[in-house]
């Protein structure tokens, strides 16, 4: 039963992933693509947690930790560039 729920959650998150990917490929301006980038990284954290649940290994969560703490650096760097600060 719990496995089925994990599968449903993965399917829903996968649809969100595809929608954000569509925005990334289509997105009219660079800013739109940056937002899609942000959403894609956050959804990736979900996939990491789900894969840790499936494989039943808690150590995989360390990667989610690194993702949560560092993935915003890329967005900030891009925002600085678009603001014209480098």
């Amino acid at each position: 039963m719990v496995e089925t729920m994990i599968v449903i959650a993965a399917v829903l998150a996968g649809i969100a992933f595809l929608l954000a990917l569509a925005r990334f490929i289509k997105g009219p301006s660079t800013f739109d693509r940056v937002i899609a980038f942000d959403v894609l990284t956050v959804v990736s954290i979900t996939f990491i947690v789900l894969s840790a649940l499936i494989e039943e290994r808690g150590i995989y969560l360390d990667i989610a930790l690194v993702y949560a703490l560092l993935s915003f650096l890329g967005v900030i760097a891009i925002a600085r560039y678009l603001e014209g600060r480098f």
């Binding site: 150590i59 995989y60 360390d62 990667i63 690194v66 560092l70 650096l73 900030i76 760097a77 600085r80």
Partner: peptide, 22 residues
């Protein structure tokens, strides 16, 4: 004990410097 090690940790420390620079 866990995934990770010197290279990963070094990159994370450098990311802290990068945040200060940004």
């Amino acid at each position: 004990l866990t995934p990770g090690g010197g290279f990963q940790g070094g990159a994370i420390v450098a990311s802290a410097i990068l945040l200060m620079l940004l």
